[in-house]
Design a protein around this nucleic acid. Structure first.
Lengths: 146, 146
DNA sequence: CGCGTGTTGGGAACAGGTTGCAGGTGGCTA
DNA sequence: TAGCCACCTGCAACCTGTTCCCAACACGCG
């Protein structure tokens, strides 16, 4: 299946004609190790732990490249920086405005809504790229909070 | 309903103990005139047309104040700057990743989905604060756009 | 009208992200 | 195995959107 190792991904890059460099390999490895969302900054720190010379431009450029190739996507979880992750996992995010908790929800939950929107407005939602914000059980006004 | 005039709003502010200053009045007037979303920058330009001395800090501070008082809200329409508007209008936004078009959709459309989410996850969505992104009829892949 | 406190303008700081450039390097070719 | 060059890199400057700081100002109570 597609839960690729770093080597798999590097091979995939090479076979698509992408030049393999130390920064690129390091970014791919870090993304695979982390396995879920990371901000560019965190990823940078992680990469620098082993490759101190890798600059943040390279992080961004590599993430761009991987995004173009469909290997990586990013999601905006509210007001903070974008979070990047490997593109093999299709879900949306619920982010609590109160405590910042992130819930992942499967597309099965959102599909009927997306279908309604495309039927009524001809608009194809992409609910994976921006999180849906709101209030979790604990932080919800009148939902058990103070 | 509350489609207030600028004077109404200023009175409301005064009665809530808010000091009325030229920048504040100007911001309120501009928001009422514009009547829909504006970015802080556009609002600043609009205000400066009549009050050239109003600084951008005052724009942001006043918007903050009005937000705290529930008179103004802002929405994030994708990657750009936040858009501010008077809080008397409850709808969500669909923003096309392709052409940037903005559709407004009534809460009636999103309510069933919000109900599903709150039932299944205890999470109370606020679909008004972040736009829903995707692809409009024309830009939709395979949707007729060239 | 005088005063005190909240507000202002201006600019600097900040955060996240992008870009230009000069030099370095992967990997094709022989 | 070496040579070459297009592509890639690190660095630093830049950009946008927003917040912060501070001395001077002015709203509005009395």
């Amino acid at each position: 299946m597609a839960a690729a190792t770093a080597d798999d991904l590097v091979d995939q890059l090479r076979s698509r004609g992408v030049r393999i460099t130390a920064p690129r390999r390091a970014v791919v490895e870090a993304l695979v190790e982390i396995g879920s969302h990371v901000t560019a900054e965190t990823l940078h720190a992680r990469v620098q732990a082993r490759h101190p010379d890798v600059s943040h431009s390279s992080i961004y450029r590599t993430l761009d490249l991987l995004t173009e190739l469909g290997i990586v996507t990013h999601v905006h979880l509210g007001h903070g920086p974008a979070e990047f992750h490997l593109a093999d996992d299709e879900h949306s995010h619920l982010v609590c405005n109160g405590c910042g908790a992130v819930l992942e929800i499967d597309c099965a939950v959102t599909d009927p809504f997306a279908r309604t929107v495309v039927d009524r407005f001809g608009f194809q939602l992409d609910l994976r790229h921006f999180a849906l914000t709101g209030w979790c059980r604990r932080c919800r006004p009148g939902g058990g909070g103070s």
